[in-house]
Design a protein around this nucleic acid. Structure first.
Length: 587
DNA sequence: TGCGGCTATTG
DNA sequence: CACAATAGCCGCAG
C-alpha cells in the first residue's frame, strides 16, 4: 500500500480528473475496519490493500484533491465510509437511482444490474444452501468471472464474494459501468422529465445523509425521557415480576369498571368490543376516535382511553425502547432509507418519525449547541402548483398563507378552502371537498386536470413518473374472485394513491434537494442535520452560529427551489427558529 | 413460525 | 380515519 499522496498520484496517473466519477468498493472486517478498496475510473482502475488508517487517509486524499462523484452500489458503502469518519461530499448511489428509474424499494446489485440489461427480475439467481439440487446445477463457468453467460451478476459475487481482492476492483468497475448505463437511461428521460438528472444526484447524496443520520443519531436527554415514561407507566420495573405487577394494576384500573366475573383481555380488540357491549356500548371497532364519542356513556371508556395511552408508551416507547435505541452517548439511533417504496419519502426506524409529542421535550441540543428547526409551510399545495404548472394556483403561493387567497377566489372561508384543496390531493370524494369540486375545477383547471390524470392512471394501473422522474408503479389489479364493488373500491384506492403519489413524491424530491443543500453549505459552520421529517429539518449547530445557520437554511431553501424547478413562479416558505429543545415554541 | 388484522404514533 | 410510514400484540393457518 502506497502512502496517501502516492495513492492519489496513482489515481491521477490513470487519468482521473477533477470532479469526475470514481467508483468505489470497500471491504470491511467484522470489526468494521476497512481491509481493501477497489477504485475504478473511466481511465483505469486500481486496488488498494493495507492498514485501515492508510486506506482511510488515501480515500480522504482523493476526496480533497479531486472532489469526485463517488459511484457506490448502495448506502452500505456510505456507511462504511462514515464509520471510518470519512464524509464525502457527493455520490452516485446505484440503488437510489435504480429506485428512481424503476420504482419499488428493492435495489440489490443483482436487481440493479438485471434492470439495466432488461433481464426479468424473476430470473435473478440466488445462492442456495448446498443440497441435492445445488449439486445437480450445471457448472456455469468461472466463479472468478462476475457475469454469468445469461448476463446476470453471479450470486457468489453479489452475496459478498466481491469483497476480496482481486475481485473488489472488478466490483468497482461493474459499478462504474452500471452508473454509465443508469445515466444513459436518465438521459433518455430528460425530454419527458427535465429534472431527472438533478433528482438522481440529489437522491444519491441523500443516501450519504442517511448514512450520517444513522451514525450521528438524534440528541436525547435520557433522564428527561425516563421521567416522561415514568409519568405514564410508573418507575422502571426491576424485575419481570414487577413489570407484570405494573401491567396488572394498569389493567385493573379499567377492569374495575367492568361487570364482575368477566375475564377480558384489554390487548385483544375482539374482547374489548365484547367488554364494551357488556356495559351497553355497541361499536363497529374500538379505535380511540370512535370511543371518543362514548366518553360520557360509561366511566370504562375514559379508563380504557387512558389505558391505551399508557400501554402504547409501555410497549413501544417505554424503558425497553430507551434501552435498545438510545446509546450511551444519549443519541437515538435508527436506520434511514432515502426513499420508501411508494412515492419516495425518507423513512426511519427506532421511532424517529413517529415519536409521540409527549416525548419530544426530551429531544434537547447538546451542551454548547442549539437546534435550528425549519419546516416547510403548506408544501403539498405549493408543490401541486409547481408540478402542474397552474398559473392561478401559483399566484396564490405569493402569500405566506396560500389558503387565504384561495379562499377569496373560491368565495369560501379559509378552513373550507384548506379542506377542499387537501381533499383533491388525497382524493376525498365526500364532504365539503367534493361539494366544492366544480368551483375548484373552474378556478384551477390545470392543477385539477393534473390530479385527474394521475387518478385515472392509478385506476387502470398505468405507470406514472413524478416531477423528478420517479417511477410510481401499481400492483396489478386482480379481478378474479372479487366482487364488482370490491373491484371498484380498489380501483378508487389506486386512483387516490396515484394522485397523492405525484404530490407527495415531488414534495419528497424538493425536500431532499433542500436537505442535501443544507448538508453541504452548513458543514463549514459545524451544522449537522440530526433529523429529517418529511417537511421538517432539525439541525444541531454550535450555539455561536445559531442565527447564521438559521439564515443559511432559508438561503438553502431558495437555492434548492431554483435547482429543483428552475424558473418556477411558485414561492416556498419555511418557518425557521433557533431552539434549545425540539418541542420549544417557535419564534 | 409467519402473516393479516387491529391499533396507535407521526407527517 | 382521504395519502404515506414504523411498530407492537392478537388470532389463526400451516
Amino acid at each position: 500500500m502506497p502512502d496517501p499522496a502516492e495513492a492519489l498520484a496513482t489515481l491521477v496517473g490513470l487519468g482521473a480528473d477533477q470532479s469526475g466519477a470514481v467508483a468505489l468498493a470497500v471491504s470491511t472486517t467484522s470489526e468494521g475496519t476497512i481491509a481493501a478498496v477497489g477504485l475504478a475510473t473511466s481511465a483505469g482502475s486500481v486496488t488498494w490493500a493495507g492498514a485501515h488508517r492508510e486506506l482511510v487517509d488515501a480515500i480522504g486524499a482523493v476526496e480533497d484533491a479531486l472532489h469526485p462523484r463517488w459511484v457506490l452500489w448502495s448506502q452500505d458503502t456510505a456507511r462504511a465510509l462514515v464509520d471510518a469518519d470519512v464524509r464525502v461530499a457527493r455520490c452516485w448511489d446505484l440503488a437510489a437511482v435504480h429506485r428512481l428509474l424503476f420504482g419499488g424499494w428493492r435495489a440489490e446489485p443483482g436487481r440493479v444490474w438485471a434492470a439495466l440489461h432488461d433481464l426479468p427480475s424473476s430470473s435473478i439467481p440466488e445462492t442456495r444452501p448446498v443440497d441435492l439440487f445445488t449439486a445437480l446445477e450445471p457448472d456455469d463457468g468461472d466463479l472468478d468471472e462476475p457475469l454469468r453467460t445469461d448476463g446476470h451478476l453471479r450470486p457468489e459475487w453479489t452475496d459478498g464474494g466481491w469483497a476480496t481482492p482481486p475481485r473488489i476492483v472488478r466490483w468497482a468497475e461493474l459499478a462504474l459501468t452500471a452508473s454509465i448505463q443508469q445515466e444513459a437511461r436518465i438521459s433518455g428521460l430528460l425530454a419527458e422529465r427535465p429534472a431527472a438528472l438533478r433528482t438522481a444526484r440529489a437522491e444519491s447524496t441523500a443516501e450519504l445523509l442517511c448514512a450520517e443520520l444513522a451514525a450521528d443519531g438524534l440528541p436525547l436527554n435520557r433522564a428527561m425521557a425516563e421521567a416522561i415514561v415514568a409519568g405514564f407507566v410508573g418507575p422502571r420495573p426491576r424485575t419481570e415480576a414487577e413489570a407484570a405487577e405494573q401491567r396488572a394494576s394498569r389493567d385493573d384500573e379499567v377492569l374495575r369498571h367492568a361487570p364482575p366475573g368477566g375475564n377480558f383481555d384489554l390487548r385483544s380488540p375482539g374482547q374489548v368490543k365484547s367488554l364494551l357491549r357488556f356495559v351497553g356500548i355497541e361499536v363497529p371497532d374500538t379505535r380511540a376516535w370512535r370511543l371518543e364519542e362514548h366518553r360520557a356513556d360509561h366511566p370504562l371508556v375514559e379508563a380504557l382511553l387512558v389505558w391505551r395511552k399508557a400501554e402504547r408508551v409501555s410497549t413501544t416507547y417505554g424503558y425497553s425502547w430507551l434501552d435498545q435505541q438510545v446509546d450511551a452517548d444519549g443519541r437515538l439511533r435508527g436506520e434511514w432509507s432515502g426513499a420508501d417504496g411508494a412515492a419516495g419519502r425518507m423513512t426511519a426506524s427506532a421511532g424517529l418519525h413517529n415519536l409521540p409529542a409527549d416525548l419530544r421535550p426530551a429531544v434537547v441540543a447538546e451542551p454548547g449547541h442549539v437546534f435550528v428547526r425549519a419546516d416547510l409551510g403548506q408544501i403539498e399545495p405549493r408543490v401541486l402548483a409547481a408540478v402542474s404548472g397552474d398559473a392561478a394556483l401559483a399566484r396564490a403561493t405569493a402569500d405566506d398563507d396560500m389558503y387565504a387567497p384561495v379562499a377569496r377566489q373560491l368565495s369560501v372561508d379559509r378552513p373550507t378552502a384548506k379542506v377542499a384543496v387537501l381533499g383533491t390531493m388525497y382524493g376525498q370524494t365526500t364532504g365539503l371537498g367534493a361539494h366544492l369540486l366544480p368551483r375548484l375545477r373552474s378556478t384551477y383547471p390545470v392543477a385539477m386536470d393534473f390530479l385527474d390524470d394521475a387518478d385515472r392512471a392509478g385506476q387502470v394501473g398505468r405507470e406514472l413518473r413524478t416531477y423528478g422522474g420517479r417511477l410510481v408503479r401499481f400492483g396489478s389489479a386482480s379481478t378474479d374472485g372479487v366482487s364488482d364493488r370490491e373491484a371498484r373500491s380498489s380501483a378508487a384506492a389506486r386512483g387516490r394513491y396515484g394522485r397523492n403519489a405525484m404530490i407527495q413524491g415531488a414534495a419528497a424530491e424538493l425536500f431532499k434537494v433542500w436537505a442535501v443543500t443544507v448538508r453541504a453549505r452548513g458543514s463549514a459552520m459545524g451544522a449537522r442535520i440530526v433529523l429529517c421529517l418529511h417537511d421538517e429539518l432539525v439541525i444541531q449547530a454550535p450555539m455561536a452560529h445559531g442565527d447564521a445557520v438559521a439564515d443559511l437554511v432559508e438561503q438553502c431553501l431558495q437555492e434548492a427551489v431554483r435547482r429543483w424547478a428552475p424558473g418556477t413562479p411558485v414561492r416556498f416558505v419555511a418557518d425557521i427558529s433557533v431552539l434549545a429543545r425540539w418541542s420549544d415554541a417557535k419564534d
